[in-house]
Amino acid sequence: MEELLEVLKESCPTVDFENETELVSGKVIDSMDLIAIISDIEEAFDISIDMDKIEPENFDSLEAIWELIQQIKGE
């Protein structure tokens, strides 16, 4: 999770990823932030996030993103 937090902070330095639980649905990050985050995660964790996984609930919090990464790695 620490590695993910580092990646996220590099993508969007001003966002409080440790405490926010509605990153997308609460419009804390916009579509451009989201795309930057997806691109960085794909590169850092060597995974590919399909379009069907790009739903607000999968990116609303640090935990949700971490869960998504584990799910994709397990597939």
Partner: peptide, 16 residues
Amino acid sequence: LFLPVSRTEAVKKLSK
């Protein structure tokens, strides 16, 4: 269009 174009390799490389 917007989301898929944003995720293309060319756009990713350029923006990076």
